[in-house]
Design a protein around this nucleic acid. Structure first.
Lengths: 232, 232
DNA sequence: ACCTGAACACCGTTCAAGT
DNA sequence: ACCTGAACACCGTTCAAGT
């Protein structure tokens, strides 16, 4: 394999799609990420991937129980891009925690449909564990009692994940317009408070709003004791 | 149509599946709810419903832009079962708000995959509006400033929705065991804080944990001012 | 406007058989 | 154990044509 068989250079296309390679979990995930970047998560299917890897769909079931698990593995891969630098930086722990969660949200925003599937099937790979460990460090630094940290971390990631997931489904501007129209059309006699708040219910640029949400939850996690009789 | 044509009684089966009825939005949603209760949300597809209604799938696109919108309409229907009685009851507003959100979560728990789709496609029907109005009333009673209420309501519903959505995908006990195994196997040198918390990360019966989460978020929404320069 | 059959372009997952 | 082709039982959505 170290000698070229023919006299000609290998054409580029050979390198780009190797004729056949041994199937591995890592290789499948790598192919999945490629397909996702090129064609979107919708196309990250067992069949599409099998085609990419020159095999039949059944082969992939050796490595992943189902499509949801495959997507979870793809997400873990992407989580490598989350910026954990704020963990060891200076400054207020709350702000640093907010920064880490904002970075997580931003990564998910690139593929909101992946976020949607993550609401159900959390990843369990190395990148996810690093993220959890980092957040726990910050909560500890902030003096959040361990019991609250245990439950709080799930909550924080859940909120961040579903914030990104909200934008799955094409970010359909028609759907948003429809919601705005419904709110505007609401009868003040039937729904006085909705009518009173009106547009403000939908106000706020995405980032402002989601960072406020994260801050609110951090504050709540810090301030809310766990029910009695539970150990931490 | 008021006279029987034949001498025999109409067989029961005629009543149960009328030969043909005019297509209406309501009728489609009703059929969708039936199919969901009988066969699960997975089967609430354009094709399956078309079969149920004795027509072709294309007919349904007159009433729903796509399958996600259909599911949102089904959810709104189900939301009629949310118990809003606590709104006008006596007692602490926080506890009553928690009760309303718990009822919402409970309704979604019956069809977690519907909750999963609701993370992306919020309903906009009458039942959803009633729920929003009720929560706003409680936040107002609790003295939550309008700006925080506007943003907070979304957050509260989002958290409750994604809490139920987490259980979509079959509640696969194997997946949970896998996560537990990963956490147990974690090396204390690499992930000291995860190792230290250990089982507690997964502890807590569902209801205890999710009601703590709701309480934490309510507290956070109450305590966290919106950024300056924003009106309420 | 509402309704439809047919078509296009796909899916997930399991099975029995091979190595 | 890993790998595979083939099969089973489905999907969403659009189109052109009808009323």
């Amino acid at each position: 394999m170290f000698v070229s068989l023919g006299g000609m250079d290998e054409p580029r296309s050979r390198r780009e799609r190797p004729a056949k390679e041994a199937l591995t979990r890592r290789g499948i995930v790598a192919a999945a990420v490629d397909v996702m970047r090129a064609e979107g998560l919708d196309r990250v299917t067992m069949r599409r991937l099998a085609k990419e890897l020159d095999t039949g769909p059944a082969s992939l079931y050796v490595y992943f129980r189902n499509t949801a698990q495959l997507h979870a593995a793809v997400l873990d891969e992407l989580l490598g891009a989350v910026d954990l630098a704020p963990v060891d930086a200076d400054g207020d722990w709350r702000e640093r925690l907010e920064a880490v969660l904002a970075s997580y949200t931003l990564v998910l925003f690139e593929y909101p449909s992946l976020a949607q599937s993550a609401v159900t099937a959390r990843p369990t790979g190395a990148n996810y564990l690093r993220l959890v460990e980092s957040i726990l460090a910050l909560l500890d630094e902030g003096g959040v009692p361990p019991g609250q940290a245990s439950w709080g971390i799930d909550l924080l990631l859940q909120l961040a994940t579903s914030t990104a997931a909200e934008h799955a489904g094409g970010d359909d501007p028609e759907a948003w317009d429809a919601l705005a129209a419904v709110l505007r059309a609401v009868k003040p006699e039937t729904y006085p408070r909705i009518a009173a708040l009106g547009e403000d219910l939908l106000s706020g640029a995405g980032p402002d709003r989601s960072s406020w949400g994260i801050r609110a939850l951090i504050n709540g996690v810090l301030a809310t004791p766990r029910p009695e009789g539970e150990t931490a």
